[in-house]
Structure formats: structure tokens, C-alpha cells
Simulated assay, not measured.
Amino acid sequence: MKNLPLLFFTETTEEGFPGFLRNRKIEDLPIFGKYRIKEVHESFTLKSNENVFVLTDSSDLSKLIGIFNSEDVIVLARSSNILCLSSPLGLQQLHEDAEIIKYRVGMRPSDLYSMRGDTFNELLRDLTEGSDKSFSTFVMEVFDKILFYRFTKLVDINGWSLLIRNICEYHGANLYPLTDPDFSPFVDVIYRNIPTLNHDIKIGRNGFVKNSFLGPGSYIDGFILNSAISGSVKISKNARVMNSVILSGNEIEENVLVENTVILDGKGRKIGKNSTVGRKSSMKNADYPEVIKNGITVIGENTPVPPHSKIGSGCFVGGLNEPEGPIYLNDGESMF
């Protein structure tokens, strides 16, 4: 992508991320326990290009009208897609017989597109006429509907792609590098290119960690398997965390089982002792079936989970009120 105009569309958690108390930029979310998505973008997608236009609202689009020539080749990417390309795109010759190209990276889907300047200018005029949607909704429609249905050529390129368009994909993006052997080289590239802090990670005498990411300041005295644990998380004795993503500020108390779950930021929140949260299944949530699926359970920001709670697969727990007693949710149910 070097020297080619790259339009980088930023997005927020407004669409597809239930459980956050306020709208956050997707690029500010933690990834792999110890990084921010923004750091990965800056080290790969944005670093590989010297001509980047970062778009954060609709007014940024209006400024692009008329600045590209018809023979230019424009690259479009979005902040909900982590990309690491093995080599620059050879675009000019590809566009001799295609208006819009969609790229499959490392045989995985991506939201990386390119088009000629004349095609982009025509598309831009259509996009900037009378839209009153939020910018994140607008970006989602551009990539998921307009570009996806209008591309005229699919091209395979080498590298890695992780989509993070909703909470379910966020769970998968954190764990694919742990469970998919094809992503092992990607993890090595991340470690070589992004400085990280490994200090203050403490493993207690009862702690056992296998195939997991740990963030700085975490304390592990329980069992962790195939999970991403952000900084300042405490996993207590006899607690078990498997195939899960736990963001900062959470304490998992003794004898708790967490499986196939995303636990958002806690700010001192405790998952009470002797509780079970999530399990492996293909269950969808009844209230958010499009984004809480594949059996993923989501515990919202700062939402208390009292001791002895039993929360099933595909569940959503939100709200800040302290429950009067344990939470009991069957598979696919929600509590607000």
C-alpha cells in the first residue's frame, strides 16, 4: 500500500457491542491482553502507507471531493479490521479490468478494498448526499452493504486479517492467534514490532497458565486456558477461565468458572465466588442474536455478579444495579 492513498475509516462501539456504558472507539479497545487495537494499526496498516487519510466523521469525507484523479488507485480500510500484509499491494495492473477489488488476506475475509479514482469520486458523491446517520452506522453500511455487493474482483494476498465488527468477532480476534496455528507467525510479528510491558505479571502458587495472553499488572492464582487477560485483573484460587476475554479491573473470585465469555471493564467489579459464567455451545442471545452468538456470553461494564450466580451460554448481563441475590440466566437470556 506504500504511497497509495489510504482512506482509514474509524468506528465506535455504537453498533454491535452491547455492554459498554459509553461509546468508545474500537481502536481504543484492548487486544491480546497487553495492546490496544490502535497500536496494531499504527504498527502495520497505517505505518505501511505514507499517504493516509484518517476519517472520523462525515465532514472528513466532504473534504475528499475532487482531490483524486481518475487514474489514481484508492485503498479503503476500517478500524474494525486488523491487517498485517506480507508485502505491498500491486494495484495498478489489477485495476485494468476491475472497478472495485475486495481482498482476502491469508485466505481469511477482510474489509480491505481498492478502486480507481473515478469510481471513488462517483461513489463519494452518492455517499455525501443527505446522510443523517451516525458516522459508525455510515461506515458499516459502506463496507457491509455498498462495497460488499459492488466489488467486481476478489484477490488473494498474503498476510493476516482479523475482523472486529461486533462483540462476537472481538472475542474471536483475541483468541484466534492462540488456537489457530496459521496465526502463530502473526503473534511473532506483533511481539517483534510493538513494545510491550511484561512487568508486574504475578503467578501465584496455585496459578496455572496455558496458551494465553496476560496483561501487565495481572495476578493469576487460578487456571487459565486459551484466554486473553488484560492488565489489572485478578484470578483467584481455584477459579477457572477458559476461551474467554477479560478486560481490566475485574476480579474473578474463588471457585468461579468462566468459559466462552467476554467480561468488559470492571473498575473493581467482582465475579462472585462459586459462580459459573458461560459454556461452550452455538447458542444465540434472544435480544442480540446478530452479535452475541456462537455461545458467547457477555458481562457488561461494571455490572455486579453476586456469588453463586449461574449464567448460561449466549447470555447478556448489563446494568449497574446491584442484584438482590445471585443471577440465574438460562442459555440465551439477558438481564438489563
Rank of each mutant, 00 (worst) to 15 (best):
K2V: 01
G207F: 11
G16K: 11
E301T: 10
Y288E: 04
K234F: 12
I167G: 01
R116G: 14
I82D: 03
P5K: 03
K237H: 13
H199M: 11
V209N: 08
I194P: 06
L163D: 12
S131Q: 11
G172Y: 13
N51D: 09
D188A: 12
G207N: 11
V187K: 14
R36D: 00
L320R: 08
I37F: 01
R116H: 04
K102I: 02
V187A: 13
P289A: 11
C315N: 09
I299S: 12
I235R: 05
L147E: 09
E141L: 11
G90Q: 15
V52G: 13
F143N: 07
N211V: 01
D28H: 09
D57M: 02
T276R: 15
K280W: 03
S59I: 05
I203A: 13
E259G: 00
E27K: 13
I194L: 13
T196Q: 14
D182Y: 11
D287F: 09
F138I: 10
L7Y: 06
T196R: 15
R22I: 10
P304E: 06
L4R: 14
Q93H: 14
K234A: 10
F44L: 04
K202Y: 13
S236G: 08
G90V: 04
P195V: 12
K310M: 11
F138W: 14
T128P: 01
L46P: 01
S110F: 09
L61A: 05
A228F: 03
K234R: 14
V262D: 01
K102R: 15
D331V: 05
L61P: 03
G278P: 09
L225E: 13
V233N: 04
L178Y: 05
F44Q: 04
V139L: 02
L46V: 08
K237C: 02
F186H: 08
E122I: 05
E122G: 14
T12P: 03
E96T: 14
G90D: 15
R205N: 04
I157P: 05
T297S: 15
G215E: 02
Y103H: 12
K237M: 07
G268E: 05
V258L: 08
L247D: 02
F17L: 07
N174F: 08
S136M: 04
V241E: 08
I67A: 02
I164T: 14
D182K: 11
D72K: 01
S62W: 01
I220W: 10
I263L: 15
S227D: 11
I220Y: 11
L264T: 01
V291H: 10
T56K: 15
P18G: 05
M1Y: 06
L197T: 12
